[in-house]
Design a protein around this nucleic acid. Sequence first.
DNA 1: AACCCCATCAACCGCCACAGA
DNA 2: TTCTGTGGCGGTTGATGGGGT
Length: 341
Amino acid sequence: MRKIASENGLKKGPWTEDEDLKLIRYIQAHGPGQWRILPKNAGLQRCGKSCRLRWINYLRPGIKRGRFSFEEEETIIQLHSVMGNKWSAIAARLPGRTDNEIKNYWNTHIRKRLLQMGIDPVTHAPRVNFLEISSILNSAGLNLSNILNLQTLVNPQLLKLATILASSSKIENRELCLNNHINHPLIPYQNHQNSNLAFAALNLPNTLLNQSHLMHENDIQNIPDNLVNMNGDTTQDILMCERAFLTGDCFNNIPNYSNQSTAQTSEKSSFQPSYTENIIPSSPKFNYESVLSSLMSRSPTPVISPSEFINNGSTEDVRESYCSSMFKLETQKSFEFNDSM
DNA sequence: AACCCCATCAACCGCCACAGA
DNA sequence: TTCTGTGGCGGTTGATGGGGT
């Protein structure tokens, strides 16, 4: 039970209308600040901290209350993926929203939804581990090691995609990931944001990106040499392609789908990083665009844009459904190439 | 109707950074 | 340089209300 009064006679708990009025009138007359002496001068039996919190989070002019919009939610997720639990910094980019409100919304809505989607809300990486990927492949009649050996039977580009996926999925230690993703000389940290936007634009799970993005340098060694040699591409080619994949650069020319979605995303998002100078051109040898186009063209599921989906409903369920569908759809797409084998 | 469970969110708490003495 | 006061931040708590049984 929350205490109504502390031992020093100060009141605790929910604020009354009368207390709110006293606080508002005092601040209108004297301005905010001097929180320690404010309650005494304003005739309030509250501690200064409580007054400050009440003003900042509830009474301050310009506070936007009510449900978070889809755009706000999207912004929060993007910012959180970059800033982590820096709620005040996130709130600074969302006019009218307080850090407390965003924090609560994250913990009660977004965090839960990400977990349901199989995404770690702390790292924003998929919680699917290597064994689970193998399991998915097995259930689809595939074995990852077989894939790597059957390179002559499948599209070599797909093979590389699988290889990269396999190597990146070995990363499970968050600290290791963070250190390497910051220090990796080949993958600029800022690209993270571009990548998020690119993946958002394509409705691809940016978590896939994040995990790949955090690829440890040692894992690069795990790319089979024979694979690289037989296809005529060097490890550097693959790394360049991976970078293009991560930055979303390889998606830029996918007709209709990417262009349309990119426009929607840039229009919606209030967070528009300008890191294009860090985008590394995709390899001329290895064309992920064709790989992805190929993958997408194999999907029987029609492409649904976020706006189309959201416009059909505004409930939490719809949002959740949209997000999880997005993840499932793309996961499914990613492994649908088995029927060509 | 009564009870329980759970989600939500306002409010509190403890800690930290920083400025000024 | 150290101490102290203050503001700010992030994590946590608990009152409340709604839904299910």
